[in-house]
Design a binder for these strands. Structure first.
Lengths: 217, 217
DNA sequence: GCCTCATTCAAACGTTCGTTTCAAACGATC
DNA sequence: GATCGTTTGAAACGAACGTTTGAATGAGGC
């Protein structure tokens, strides 16, 4: 066979199926069948279905979190006070699928190729964000929170006058907008990823830059 | 009326559980137990789990769609060219839970500690929007699409210069932002519904009013 | 050859799932 | 009180689920 590793094939299949059907909607049997592996291979390589999801999630999220942190470093290194649009782009761009993934400066990542499977990454992120199953996001660690806190601080400096609570709301709004192509698929198929990404950046830059919400009227 | 109808109790319990755990994550047994009804009651009153979900969804969505349509009627009746902020508010406000609407359905579940009364409707809407299970949204009909098309036309008039495709994206962005309080619950509990709603309207009015995205640079 | 180790395999474990069955209880009408 | 249609009850159905078991398989070192 000389195919890819069974473990990797399972990770790839699970990444796609968890993104498409959610945690509860994906069976271990469906994963192993799609991967061309035996049912027991999940237990052997990962331990349990929840552990498989954690492995899938970490493989996707870790380079994204690293890219978000590196982009913020680069931004703060250039100018002391980056614009809102720059912050939005630095935060959101790694969340989208890279049609032309070049970057990768910090050599820590790379490692295992990571080829193929674009356009699936952002779908898994959205699934992680919105899936009600605890196993879908319970594995996330402090690294993700840390980089989000750093962006929150940067947005706070770029947007004085916005209360911290509203800023938290808006930062979560960035993530929520990632789910846009999961919504209302009945009318028409989601546009190409490239156009979606540029529209989202426009949408989010304007939203983040909105004047503060006044008190209840 | 010793207590509410079995059929209604099942609808209430299903509305809460489908919103909290999604379609695949909610068992018929969990619904009937929460409703204090027999397992077979779902089959008798609704036919199947998918039919139950359709009944739950229609009960929630229909008045919202009607309110969205009525709000647009009212708006277009007053001024021929409503502003973007007015359109956003007319479209989005019915999607949020009405704090003022005390429909008197607070007695569904007694034991839950939190304020279970409202804040469930918008959660179900979000669950319907993002749940990957076909049964979660497959029941939606032409009425919902029709009102969304009417808003799309109104936004098109209010925002000349935005391509129809980008406008579709932004309109879906309105719905996506509804999912914001489902995201990142680790940092802090979701804010009160009232503040969330006002922040969302600010966020969305600015986002919808953004200048058109230029061609790829 | 033999042994060791990691991996794969078919099969089975017990549990939970959605659904169905059929008898019992209920309320209204005669 | 008997009868009818409607609703509820306990129990069971087969299928699918996550997980575990223990025997095959194969490569590498002796």
């Amino acid at each position: 066979m000389a195919q890819t590793d069974t473990r990797t094939r399972i990770l790839d299949a699970a990444e796609r199926l968890f993104a498409e059907r959610g945690f509860s909607g994906t069976s271990v049997r469906a994963v192993t069948e799609a991967a061309g592996a035996n049912l027991a291979a999940v237990g052997y390589h990962f331990g349990s279905k929840a552990d498989l999801m954690a492995a899938v999630g970490r493989r996707v999220i870790e380079p994204i979190t690293a890219a978000q942190g590196a982009a913020l470093d680069r931004l703060l290194d250039g100018v002391p006070e980056p614009s809102v649009a720059e912050l939005v782009e630095a935060f959101a761009r790694p969340l989208f699928d890279d049609e032309s993934e070049s970057g990768g400066e910090s050599g820590s990542e790379s490692g295992s190729g990571g080829e193929a499977g674009s356009a699936r990454r952002s779908r898994l992120i959205v699934a992680i964000l919105v899936d009600p199953a605890e196993e879908m996001h319970g594995w996330m660690g402090a690294a993700e929170e840390a980089v989000q806190d750093r962006y929150l601080a940067a947005f706070t400096r770029a947007l004085p006058g916005i209360t911290p609570e509203e800023l938290v709301f808006r930062t979560r709004g960035i993530l929520a907008v990632m789910a846009v192509d999961r919504i209302g698929g009945r009318t028409q198929p989601p546009a190409a990823g490239e156009a979606n990404r540029r529209w989202a950046l426009t949408f989010l830059a304007a939203a983040m830059s909105a004047p503060p919400t006044g008190p209840a009227r």
